[in-house]
Simulated scan of single mutants.
Amino acid sequence: MTSATLRAAAVPLLAGVLTLGCLTAWTVTGNAGTPPRLDVTDGRILTASNTEATAAFFTISNTGTTADELTGVTGPAGLRAMVGRDVEVAEGAHRMEMAGAVAVPARGALRMAPTGLDVMVSPPPRLAPGDRLTFTLHFRHSGPVTAEAVAVRPGQLRL
């Protein structure tokens, strides 16, 4: 090999090493992003006030730098659970509708509440305050997350 050939090969090699070094530094400092890191907490389920359905509420925190989506929920055997949204149809009148996939923001949280997003459970199980039910929340990018909801009376719900 001639010195001209070695110099010609050195330029792309040096550019590749420099690029790899920059990408490594970018990743090590956390700028390349991290997958969603989800934690489901504050589970509450209302003791039934009617014979059709009740609602459960959770807080979903994401400490990752990538957003995720809540795509569904499963509840205990014999109960139907689905993600729903409270929608105002007229002043003072509301109805529940199924929610599609719901965003869980990167470095943020999704907090369910009676006047927003919740998990509708039907038929409503017989629960006394303090009873616990286990739910599994399903996400588009993360694996399923299992969480407990503690039964509370409707007037005692604190989110």
Results as ranks from 00 to 15, higher is better:
Phe57Tyr: 11
Arg37Phe: 07
Leu137Ala: 15
Gly64Arg: 09
Thr71Glu: 01
Gly43Phe: 11
Pro105Thr: 09
Thr54Tyr: 07
Asp42Lys: 07
Met120Lys: 05
Ala93Met: 11
Glu148Arg: 13
Met98Lys: 13
Ile45Gln: 01
Ser61Pro: 01
Glu91Asn: 09
Thr74Ser: 15
Ile60Cys: 01
Ala106Trp: 05
Leu133Gly: 11
Pro124Gln: 04
His141Trp: 02
Thr71Pro: 05
Pro124Cys: 02
Arg107Cys: 03
Gly92Val: 04
Ala109Asp: 13
Arg80Tyr: 11
Gly108His: 04
Glu97Gly: 12
Arg140Thr: 14
Gly72Cys: 09
Gly43Gln: 12
Thr51Gln: 13
Ala103Lys: 14
Met96Ile: 14
Arg44Met: 15
His138Lys: 02
Thr51Met: 13
Ala149Cys: 12
Ser122Phe: 01
His94Arg: 10
Val73Asp: 05
Gly72Val: 14
Met120Thr: 03
Leu137Asp: 12
Leu46Met: 12
Thr146Gln: 14
Gly78Ile: 03
Pro144Val: 12
Ala109Glu: 15
Glu148Lys: 13
Thr134Lys: 04
Ala81Ile: 06
Asn62Glu: 03
Val87Trp: 00
His138Leu: 13
Gly92Leu: 03
Val119Asp: 00
Val87Leu: 04
Pro124His: 00
Thr47Arg: 05
Gly78Glu: 03
Ala53Leu: 11
Arg95Phe: 11
Ala55His: 11
His141Val: 08
Arg44Cys: 15
Arg132Asn: 06
Gly64Gln: 13
Gly72Ser: 13
Arg37Pro: 06
Glu148His: 07
Thr54Ala: 12
Glu52Phe: 09
Pro144Thr: 07
Val104Glu: 03
Thr41Cys: 08
Met82Val: 14
Arg85Phe: 14
Pro114His: 05
Asp68Val: 07
Val73Cys: 05
Val83Gly: 08
Ala101Gly: 15
Ala101Leu: 13
Glu97Asn: 10
Ala149Leu: 06
Glu52His: 02
Pro105Met: 07
Met112Asp: 08
His141Asn: 06
Gly116Arg: 00
Pro114Asp: 03
Thr65Gln: 02
Pro125Ser: 05
Arg85Ala: 14
Arg85Ser: 13
Val83Arg: 13
Met112Lys: 02
Arg107Ala: 11
Val102Met: 11
Phe58Trp: 12
Thr63Cys: 05
Pro114Asn: 05
Asp68Met: 05
Ala48Pro: 15
Ala101Tyr: 04
Pro125Asn: 01
Val83Thr: 14
Met120Arg: 12
Asp42Met: 09
Ala147Phe: 10
Gly130Lys: 01
Met98Gln: 15
Thr59Pro: 02
